[in-house]
Design a protein around this nucleic acid. Structure first.
Lengths: 208, 208, 208, 208
DNA sequence: AGCTAATCGAGACGGTACGTCTAGTCTTAAA
DNA sequence: TTTAAGACTAGACGTACCGTCTCGATTAGCT
């Protein structure tokens, strides 16, 4: 089945080295400071090699981010009021890391408002249809996890039976993105809990 | 009071002409297709003049978007279940317009998924601190309107008294951005109503 | 006869202040570092005022140089073998000063080879016909002096009667310019004497 | 011996095409009318390629002039009174060509006084130390030829044995430059002969 | 005292050259 | 076929510079 490869095989360690270098550059200097030329030079490879594996800078940047967020696991303790903020916080942490990318290194920790490189990466996905597809796949996996969590909670009776799960998750995740991208305010555990609470209780006055 | 003006005054019509030209380019070709050189040439002014008023391309792009969204008004009929989706739809329409910017004009209407130029503009705000500030101001104005709408509804008794207004609006607006930027799905009136409904009713199972 | 001036008279002290500032800039930074904008600002005047008096930067630069070389006097002791090198040395000193213009100030005195700003000033004269005319007038005055010196020496019997005075002076002055502009070698008293000696004695082998 | 070449080799024909285009522009429009952008476009290459080979406009301009004067050969018939004016005339022709560069083409032949682009090129050499070095090398080669001519004549007994060859050649070449650059008068065969005659005979009254 | 004419200060404006930067492709030779 | 090295394309972006223009405010002489 697997057709035999001809010619010189790719050196496997190059991928790792490139991603490592690119990750450092992206986090230290932001998207604008990530230059294929420099990545190639620092990784000790030729540009040809780089472009053979990641056909555009946008592909490379996505590869970096994908690896950074790979590890988002979800835990299900059976209590949605605990699990949901915990998961949101994980998402928030990933956003915060990208938001801080490219800010002054000698910082006091306060990086000021603003979306950092998050928007650049979304823009990259917009420019390259292929990257956009990959991004959506990545988010689809995440959504699947979150949706399953919510559906289990619904089935347990914690959430109402006719809940619009998609809309709910859009709201929760969306709020995080909105904060980071638009208002520039930080997202942290406390905020994740406010969101959860507001979403679960509902805004309407309780009927009695 | 009004301190005397010194020097040659700026020609006022230049602003209008430039924004007009830039708007057309941005909408037709997207952020990447907006070139200061071309704007200057089409507007019949020198590049220096352009850069004196908008010191970077990012400033110019923001100016375009700011004017496009200038007109978002809010109407308050006294029924939050009607006013809220109406306002969300206006925001959505603005996003959709920017999302479509730069896609092929001879299109069938279906522009495919993806954030279009929305992310580019947020990235611009991230690159230029000054633009970021302006963006946040613009959104702060919008938020103030929305917040007032929600607070009046709360005072009327439509919403619960201890509602976290900020979190609620983040969720609603955020969901729109999340859809456009991340999942690439369209945002329309129907979606605005799903959001409103989900947010108002709350996700939790009604007690008793 | 002199028709009465109408309107506000020019402020006389401005000329002096501008030339002073321009001279310092030209000598410190060379022709390229002489900027009308900066001259105006440092002299505390408006650009309008500057350009009313010196219609181009080239005119201004020439004005600076003209004043620097104003004082070249000629002395006639009756001995051409002494007077000629003395005069050449004066010319050389002026050239050296301009040659050094724009070189590092913290220098050890050795400014390296190269023509410095001399060529820039000649280029200025080439660009502006009016300045060229002024330059040629300036040199014509100098030539007249030198020519008179040589003619008196000829009449005294120091030089041969059928001497081509113009060619001789071209050779002497030209050698100075050639050194400064082309070979980049320094011109000093010793060199002035070598020139004088070579020119007076002639290159041809003395006949029997 | 010859170490192996790495990377893509430079396309050799680019040099020729660029120089050709640049030469035409320089001669037709003078130094000020020589624009790297236009050269690149007309030569059909990218600006980066141009700047890789000639890092500034000044380098490019020098390359043009260097090639124009490449072919100055010297002939030695054994009669210094014939060879010297002939060689001077060649130098003069080169100067005249550059002097005329950029003057109106529809001219009557009379280009008026002034140094044309000669001064611009010397100024270029002054601005770019590297170009200055190249210029001095070029002139050093020329000087070597002339010096050899003079020395052979001296050895033959045409010139006096203790002649200061350097000073003599400075005088002759310098006079040409002085005329072109300063007095703006034309240099031609007749002038070359006046110079030679004056220099060889000497200015001093012949002793008897 | 008002009128006229020119200067002055401040800064916008035009026009354009110059060079830098970046992403990505192509062409060699060697492995 | 991959890899290294580096030339090449294409063009955007912003800066620098010179000189012009347009205001309002002055400052003189003339009427």
């Amino acid at each position: 089945m697997s057709e035999t490869r001809r010619g010189r095989p790719r050196r496997a360690e190059i991928d790792a080295r490139v991603i490592e270098v690119a990750t450092e550059l992206l986090l230290r200097r932001g998207y604008g400071g990530l230059s294929p030329d420099e990545v190639a030079e620092r990784a000790g490879i030729a540009k040809t090699t780089l472009y053979r594996r990641w056909p555009t800078k946008d592909h490379l940047a996505f590869a970096v981010v994908a690896r950074l967020q790979d590890d988002d696991e979800i835990t299900d303790t059976g209590d949605i009021r605990r699990d949901l903020p915990a998961y949101l916080e994980k998402i928030a942490a990933g956003l915060e890391r990208m938001r801080r990318a490219g800010r002054d290194p000698g910082d006091t920790g306060d990086t000021g408002p603003g979306p950092g490189s998050v928007a650049d990466l979304l823009a990259a996905a917009a420019r390259q249809p292929e990257v956009g597809e990959l991004v959506r796949e990545m988010y689809a996996r995440r959504n699947t996890l979150a949706r399953a969590l919510l559906e289990r909670a619904r089935d347990r009776g914690e959430l109402r039976p006719d809940l619009d799960v998609e809309a709910l998750f859009d709201q929760l995740a969306g709020a995080l993105y909105y904060r980071v991208l638009v208002t520039g305010l930080p997202v942290d555990r406390a905020y994740a809990e406010r969101l959860t609470d507001t979403a679960l209780r509902g805004a309407a006055r309780e009927r009695n």
